[in-house]
Simulated scan of single mutants.
Amino acid sequence: MSDFLHDNDFERFRNLIYDESGIHFSTTNRSILESRLKERLKRSGLDSIDDYFQLIRRNEEELKILLDSVTTNLTRFFRNTAHFQTFEHFVIPDLLEYKRARGDRKLRIWSAGCSTGEEPYTIAMILREILPADFSFEIVASDISLKSVMIGKEGYYSDNRMNGVPPGYLAKYFTRMEGGYQVSDEIKQHIRFDYHNLKNDSGLRNLDIVFCRNVLIYFDEAAQKAVVNRFWDTLAGYAYLYIGHSESLFGMGTSFEFVKTDWACVYRKKV
């Protein structure tokens, strides 16, 4: 047992974080929560862990900061190439055929858990390359980390964050800046960044694709199912869901159809 975070303290912080976000801390990753709490306690100038617990109960902004600090914002451009190959060669052609037959010429996409924005920018660059001239698109990019959302909205990335961006894309969609690159307005115009907690309904509807990769792993089974059911509600009658390659909907009893392509696996809503 830690001298800093006693078992009863761990339980009440873990329960509060779960209730507010769906993020589940097991005993094996207790040390991560403890280190984040130590940092917040120091920055808040408080003397005890109980004082900090009372603070986040009454101060919504401090609660958001804590939730931000316990998430892992690991991402990069074109992360998991197979997913984007599936996107380019299977998902988009399939959706274009479906939507064209119904006179709909707009793709609506949500990057849920977008971290610092590399994922939605990757999606936007691919679509600028492959979409026919008579189609348009819009992307909503959201995360529980307000700090990450602001980085994404700014669209500036240091040199060491640019690994994986094809040279052609780099030349076409970025401007060289001191120490890094700035995403072009041509790409930024398609994306709206927003703070969102997946515990809540986003209010989005009739989406064609939801990307939520490597986020469900932070939730327990009940929270995972609740989030996936909300994704179902946000999607149009024929649409796609991307989750992380190590994540699965198996055993959840959802109505999503498992689709195996030549590149990667995705889930499809078909009603």
Rank of each mutant, 00 (worst) to 15 (best):
W110T: 08
P93F: 02
R30L: 05
K38H: 09
R79I: 09
A82D: 15
D47V: 00
Y121S: 03
L96N: 02
E62C: 02
T27C: 07
G117S: 01
F77R: 12
G103K: 10
I49S: 03
L107Q: 08
K106V: 15
T72Y: 03
L107A: 12
S69H: 10
K106N: 15
W110V: 10
L46M: 10
A82K: 14
R36I: 13
K38N: 08
E88M: 09
T28H: 12
G103F: 13
T116Y: 09
D50C: 04
F78C: 07
T72V: 11
Y52S: 01
L107T: 09
A101K: 15
R102Y: 03
R76A: 14
H89R: 13
C114N: 01
I92H: 05
N73M: 04
T116A: 10
K106S: 15
I65N: 11
L33M: 14
F90H: 06
T86G: 12
R30S: 10
K64I: 04
D47I: 00
I109Y: 02
L37A: 13
K99A: 10
L55E: 06
S111C: 11
D94I: 02
R76D: 07
S35K: 15
K38I: 01
I92N: 09
T81F: 12
E39W: 03
L55K: 05
T27D: 11
D50R: 08
V91I: 15
P120M: 08
F90D: 11
D50H: 09
L107H: 08
A101T: 11
T28F: 10
D51P: 05
Y98K: 08
K42R: 14
W110L: 07
Q85T: 13
L63E: 03
T27L: 12
L74N: 05
A82W: 06
R43N: 08
S31R: 14
R57F: 05
